[in-house]
């Protein structure tokens, strides 16, 4: 139920929000003053802004590709798991269980240092994207399962009666309906991918974390480096969260069915 906001209530909210932000800033300032009291200067980091930009771009590209391929992999895993051929079903199930139980850092190591090595392939960017894709795929498979199962079974009866082929069912009826439902998990996974891509620094991929490490070793501006690093991730993930909230509110409107 909506009640009309009074003037004090409406002005209170932003102020209270700002106060909450201040508490955190104060805490961070306290830590910085304790650790690096004398020579704190963010500008030292931005002497290398070219490298930072490059790294920022790489992080975004790697994450976007990982989510894109991860979504495709997730859909394929979903289809395999629904397969009547037990071999395919098992293959998908084993992949999903193993990947969900593996820490991303381990996956990055294995992909780059062993699997890449075995195939004489050493393009660390691509191997990094493969590792992230393999990590995200199983989660997307579960998202597809949930979204597709939320479709009323009666719709399948209707599709059968009118002679839809398997492809036509997915192309015209199922995927368009779940597309909007899939957006929030997709955004969440993009956020995971961006954060997870920081682990690729172990294989010397020039993403944000790796770039900051380099800058720190050159400038000795350690606390500044971590602060910039942290803010850089937040600068990407917070807008994503806001976008996600917006999409969810639109989705509610869309699914407002009597």
């Amino acid at each position: 139920m909506k009640t009309k906001k009074t003037f004090t209530q409406s002005i209170n909210k932003p102020i209270q929000f700002f106060m909450a932000v201040l508490v955190y800033i104060a805490f961070i300032a306290f830590v910085i003053l304790r650790v690096a009291p004398n020579n704190f200067s963010i500008s030292r980091i931005f002497e290398y802004s070219g490298l930072l930009k490059e790294a920022f771009k790489n992080t975004m590209i790697i994450s976007l590709f990982a989510v894109l391929f991860g979504t495709v992999l997730g859909f394929v895993l979903y289809l395999l798991r629904e397969s009547r051929i037990y071999f395919l079903k098992s293959a998908a199930n084993i992949f999903i269980e193993v990947m969900m139980g593996t820490p991303l850092l381990v996956l990055v190591f294995i992909t780059s240092f062993f699997i890449g090595e075995a195939f004489n392939y050493s393009e660390d960017y691509v191997l990094g994207i493969i590792a992230l894709t393999a990590y995200i795929g199983p989660y997307m498979a579960n998202m597809f399962k949930g979204a597709i199962e939320s479709i009323d079974p009666q719709q399948y009866i209707v599709m059968d009666l009118y002679g839809f082929t398997g492809f036509q069912k997915y192309r015209y009826i199922i995927l368009p309906q779940i597309a909007i439902r899939m957006m929030p998990p997709l955004m969440n996974n993009l956020s995971y991918a961006i954060k997870g891509s920081s682990l690729l620094y172990v294989t010397a991929v020039t993403e944000i974390f790796y770039a900051i490490k380099i800058i720190q070793s050159k400038t000795y501006a350690y606390s500044e480096g971590y602060l910039v690093l942290w803010l850089a991730y937040l600068a990407i993930t917070i807008p994503l969260t806001l976008l996600n909230k917006y999409i969810e509110s639109r989705q509610k409107e869309y699914e407002d069915i009597d």
């Binding site: 009666q154 719709q155 009666l161 009826i173």
Partner: peptide, 17 residues
Amino acid sequence: YQNQLGFVFQKHNLFPH
């Protein structure tokens, strides 16, 4: 066989999108 028939259900079962 089903091509000869039309079907109306208890619920309308229209595709919601």
